[in-house]
Amino acid sequence: MNDAAPPEKPHHTGHRARLRARFLEAPSAVPDYEILEMMLFAANPRGDMKTEAKRLLGLFGNSFARLLNADRAALRAAGLTEAQIGPIVLAREAATRLTRADLAEKPILSNWQALLDYVQVAQGEAPVEQFRVLFLDRKNALLKDELQQQGTIDQTPVFPREVVKRALELGASALILVHNHPSGDVKPSRADIEMTKQVRDAAKALGINLHDHVIVGRGRHASLKSMGLI
């Protein structure tokens, strides 16, 4: 007769099911590390992902947004496999498309908060500078949203002629420029101001209006138009 006690079950047995149930019951009450933990489940059929999720968040300053916006190279450097990176990229793209869809509901100038929400999600936490142009029609509805350039941690090369050329190709009547400052300091630099004026003047000569240039970074934003710089 074998009186040996049955082996103890791992402490995480049943944890995934309980976590999913809690999430479905009250999604907003689940902390960031548990959201990330669930994202890692698909690539890790077994094992406790809680410790790994907390480790990853720590590497990105305990910022879920910064982790979601990290590029694949940074995620690989953090020790993630391609299978683990996939759900993170998927979540970022889903959030971007959701906020971008709100821009189509009405003209952008009367839907400014939706624009700010979108660009914050799209690039507010990006680790390098990105330059985006929103091309608008005569009613200020969104024609096209394009990421024109991607640069380094503190600069992005922008060519005003290329911006205006693309506007003509699309038949755009107006533009909104957007770029991010990875440092989180959204104060425009002299180069930002000069480039904006060059785009404004080149566009104006062809009957295209530059509505604004918005700088975003880590939940903050600055409007060059509101600052009286254009």
Results as ranks from 00 to 15, higher is better:
residue 132 R to N: 14
residue 4 A to M: 10
residue 177 L to K: 00
residue 56 L to M: 13
residue 142 L to P: 02
residue 63 S to E: 07
residue 95 A to H: 02
residue 37 E to N: 11
residue 110 S to Q: 14
residue 153 I to W: 10
residue 172 A to I: 04
residue 35 I to S: 07
residue 62 N to C: 12
residue 150 Q to C: 08
residue 178 V to T: 03
residue 160 P to L: 07
residue 60 F to P: 04
residue 100 R to F: 05
residue 112 W to H: 11
residue 16 R to F: 00
residue 98 L to W: 11
residue 82 E to P: 00
residue 173 S to Y: 09
residue 38 M to Y: 02
residue 200 R to T: 00
residue 94 A to F: 12
residue 62 N to A: 13
residue 116 L to G: 00
residue 160 P to R: 07
residue 207 G to M: 05
residue 98 L to Y: 14
residue 202 A to T: 03
residue 54 K to W: 01
residue 206 L to S: 12
residue 41 F to K: 07
residue 148 Q to C: 12
residue 81 T to F: 00
residue 126 A to F: 01
residue 187 K to R: 13
residue 229 L to E: 01
residue 93 E to W: 10
residue 215 I to G: 01
residue 105 E to I: 13
residue 210 L to Y: 04
residue 184 G to P: 01
residue 99 T to P: 00
residue 90 L to N: 14
residue 19 L to Y: 07
residue 161 R to C: 03
residue 123 Q to W: 01
residue 115 L to Q: 02
residue 220 R to T: 04
residue 9 K to W: 04
residue 182 P to C: 06
residue 97 R to D: 09
residue 144 K to V: 06
residue 112 W to F: 13
residue 94 A to T: 14
residue 222 A to Y: 00
residue 188 P to V: 01
residue 227 M to V: 06
residue 218 R to S: 06
residue 182 P to Q: 05
residue 2 N to A: 07
residue 55 R to N: 12
residue 143 L to K: 09
residue 26 A to Q: 15
residue 98 L to A: 15
residue 104 A to R: 12
residue 2 N to T: 09
residue 90 L to E: 15
residue 160 P to Y: 04
residue 201 D to V: 03
residue 60 F to Q: 09
residue 156 T to V: 15
residue 52 E to N: 12
